Simulated assay, not measured.
Amino acid sequence: MSITIYPLASLSQIEKTPSREDGIPPELEEDLRAYGCKLIHEAGILLKQKQVAVATAQILFHRFWYVTSMKQFGIGDIGMGALYLASKLEECPIRMRELINVYDLLLQRASHTTGSTSSAQQYSDFKYVPMSYFGSTFYDLKDALVVAEMQILKRLGFNVHVVLPYGTLVNYLRVLGLTSREDVCTRAWGYLNDALQTPVYALYPVPTIVSAAIMLTTRHLGISLPSSPENRWWELFDAEWEDVWSVCGYIMRLYRERDAEDQKRLWGTAETLNARGRTAADI
């Protein structure tokens, strides 16, 4: 990772990630990243964790896959380790047992929903079966959590500094005179949270990401901002047009529709990589 105020992926890491080197298609890697971040977000809600810890965990999760292949470690395990580490960094630690229980619930539910034949059946007949604390499942997940946290620290070189975008968003909206619009603030904030499911926080500086959120918001709400060649609003925040547009593309791809077969394929791949990653970690 390159060294700036906060670490960003290098050009060589962006062009060919370790997972791509191992034969994982770019689209599948992108979907697996989003799925892992979704699990982190859901776990954070169930654990009543602070948003700053959840966001930090998602950013660390993305950084990890620019230095490590998904064939080496499981998506769920690294997400669990990232959330556990982030809770310490943001001084809102969570109990290991509670985190393991929540991830076990989420993984069981994901397995059930992908096997359901209809959307109505996905949640209606799901029943969580708690693991036995004297069985192997709990200790396997506990070992995976410890290994994941250790590997994140090791492979990121203990450089786990994260800059979150929320304060910057408020300042930029104030400069643009948009803080009085509640719909603008809410939608832009939502785009920043959705962007956590994409790798943009490991690729671009915060001003560029915030500018992209503002651009998507103003375009969807029909708000005009200065964009003439001599008076471009994003240049006020030292953001490049090509980078802002690229971040917008990453965010909008999250909203594309996926059919049931795509979801089953994604879950099956994540489950396979999880099992393979734990075997590799044991070796």
Rank of each mutant, 00 (worst) to 15 (best):
E42W: 04
Y250V: 00
P226E: 09
L156F: 01
R278C: 03
P205T: 01
A53D: 12
L156E: 03
E91A: 09
F134Y: 09
L173W: 07
F64S: 01
I152C: 00
V244L: 08
E21K: 14
A34M: 07
G190N: 12
I59F: 00
Q151K: 14
A239N: 03
L28Y: 07
I283F: 03
V160P: 01
E15H: 09
G44R: 08
Q121G: 09
M96E: 14
Y6Q: 03
G177F: 09
W189G: 05
Q151E: 11
S119C: 10
A55V: 06
T279R: 14
V147E: 04
N159P: 03
H112I: 02
L60T: 02
S87W: 06
G23W: 12
G177K: 05
A195V: 00
S246R: 02
T4D: 13
L8H: 04
L153M: 14
A57K: 03
L173Y: 07
D262I: 07
S246A: 03
D143V: 11
I209C: 00
D125T: 14
G135P: 11
D31T: 04
I5D: 02
D22W: 12
E182S: 15
I94S: 11
S224N: 09
G36F: 04
A34P: 08
A57D: 10
R97T: 14
D282K: 11
D238I: 00
Q122N: 02
T17P: 09
V200I: 01
E271Y: 09
L156Y: 01
E230Y: 09
H41L: 12
S180W: 05
I209R: 00
T68D: 02
D259I: 07
P26M: 08
R97Y: 05
A281Q: 04
E271V: 08
M252W: 00
H41Y: 13
P18I: 08
A148K: 07
P18A: 10
M70G: 15
S136F: 06
S119T: 15
G135V: 10
G115K: 14
Y255K: 14
W234F: 14
S19K: 10
W233P: 05
E91I: 04
S246P: 00
N101K: 12
E182Y: 13
I223D: 04
L11M: 11
E182G: 06
K142G: 08
A43N: 10
I45C: 10
L60R: 00
C92H: 13
C37D: 03
G277M: 05
E261L: 10
L254W: 06
L196M: 15
C248N: 00
M150K: 13
H220D: 03
S118D: 07
E15V: 11
E261T: 13
I100F: 10
V170L: 15
S12V: 12
L266R: 13
G157D: 01
M70Y: 05
M150R: 15
D22T: 12
A53H: 06
R174Y: 08
T186K: 15
E235G: 06
Q151T: 05
P199N: 03
N171S: 15
D125G: 06
L105E: 12
I283H: 02
L8Q: 03
L28I: 13
L39R: 00
E257H: 11
E240T: 06
R155W: 08
G177W: 07
L8V: 04
Y201K: 02
S111V: 02
L173I: 09
